[in-house]
Amino acid sequence: MMESLVFLLLLVLLPSYIIALTACSSLEEFPGWMGETHSVKSKTGIDLSRTAQTLGVAIDPSRVTQLSWNPRAFLYKGFLTDEECDHLIRLAKDKLQKSMVADNDSGKSVLSEIRTSSGMFLSKGQDEVVARIEDKIAAWTFFPKENGEAIQVLKYQHGEKYEPHYDYFHDKLNQALGGHRIATVLMYLSNVVKGGETVFPASTEDSQYKDDSWSDCGKRGVAVKPRKGDALLFFSLFPNATPDESSLHSGCPVIEGEKWSATKWIHVASFEKPKSNTHVCEDGHHQCGEWAAVGECTKNPAYMVGTPEWPGSCRKSCKVCETNLQTT
């Protein structure tokens, strides 16, 4: 009987004891109690514990909702500010080209009626706003920035859509650089009056209530309406890195209005090739020649040729290397 009373007394007093102990002790003894991390130093003395706040990036988990576990999909409401959305549109609107898809056999980019939007790629770290968004994506997803492709900005007009597809690759050519795409962050840059939903038709979950404001396409599975500033994160691979077929997804046709979005594809490994030294001129992507042939050097110079802050990915094909550099 006495032992039971002592046990009950401990249950009552233990929480108060922990609170008092926390208040009396130095914060260094309880790292993480307010969200901070340990101050871990690498062998080179670099602090590895910088939080999102240290980087000037604020991530609010309370804005994130889980949409589905099959596939794993999450919606972050208000991920981008209106100003960030408008900035990405301004960077892209004069440089849009017909969207292409990767051929399943060759891996080359080809035109297809599967995808009828227009788009263009920004350069990584193209300016302060783009760099901040990339930092924000890395902080939310816990994937290194170097695992991501450059952000692609897309515009869908009336009737334009992207039929059901996977973001992971079927061909070996695209898998050679960075491996499969493991995750996708799809950011909505504008509101759409009707249509334009992102839908997962192969999802095994069906708990969403959908009224007549949804298009018929958007009612065919777990779906997200495009709302300015929101971001959708979904995984194309299982945790063991095998393809998740339930990640099949599509962009429904726009019925009324127009849809702007920005996509960041993230790979299982670094997507960046080592930077060449100053005595070598080379392309950073196997399709640079094809892109240059259709005029991308002038239509999308920030990505192809580069900026003062960021080297272009296709300088050799664009023939902008300095004349005294050795070509490869």
Rank of each mutant, 00 (worst) to 15 (best):
M1P: 07
L5V: 07
L9M: 09
V12S: 12
V12G: 09
Y17V: 11
I19A: 15
I19S: 14
C24Q: 13
L27K: 14
L27C: 09
E28I: 04
G35W: 10
T37N: 12
V40T: 13
V40G: 07
V40L: 14
S42R: 05
S49C: 11
R50Q: 13
R50H: 12
T51D: 12
Q53G: 10
G56C: 09
D60L: 05
D60K: 05
R63E: 02
R63F: 00
R63M: 03
Q66D: 01
S68F: 00
S68G: 02
T81N: 12
D86R: 10
D86K: 08
D86H: 09
D86P: 02
H87Q: 03
H87E: 01
R90E: 15
R90C: 06
A92L: 08
A92K: 11
K93H: 09
K93I: 06
K95S: 15
V101T: 14
A102R: 06
A102M: 03
N104Y: 04
S106A: 06
L111K: 05
I114L: 13
S117T: 14
S117E: 05
S118C: 06
S123C: 05
K124I: 09
V130N: 10
I133D: 13
I133A: 12
I137K: 03
A138V: 06
A139D: 05
W140R: 01
F142Y: 07
F143E: 03
K145S: 06
A150C: 13
A150I: 02
V153R: 12
P164K: 01
H165V: 00
Y168R: 02
H170T: 14
K172R: 10
N174E: 10
A176Q: 13
G179D: 11
V185G: 05
V193H: 03
F200G: 00
P201Q: 06
Q208M: 03
K210M: 14
D212E: 15
S213C: 09
S215W: 03
C217Y: 05
G221Q: 02
V222N: 05
V222W: 00
V224S: 07
N240Q: 07
D244S: 07
D244Q: 06
S246V: 03
S246K: 10
S250Q: 13
S250R: 04
G251Q: 08
G251Y: 07
E256A: 13
T263W: 01
K264Q: 15
A269F: 05
F271M: 06
E272L: 10
E272T: 09
P274S: 00
D283E: 03
C288M: 08
C288P: 00
C297Y: 03
K299Y: 00
A302N: 13
Y303N: 11
V305N: 10
V305K: 15
T307S: 15
E309N: 09
S313R: 09
S317K: 01
K319L: 10
K319S: 14
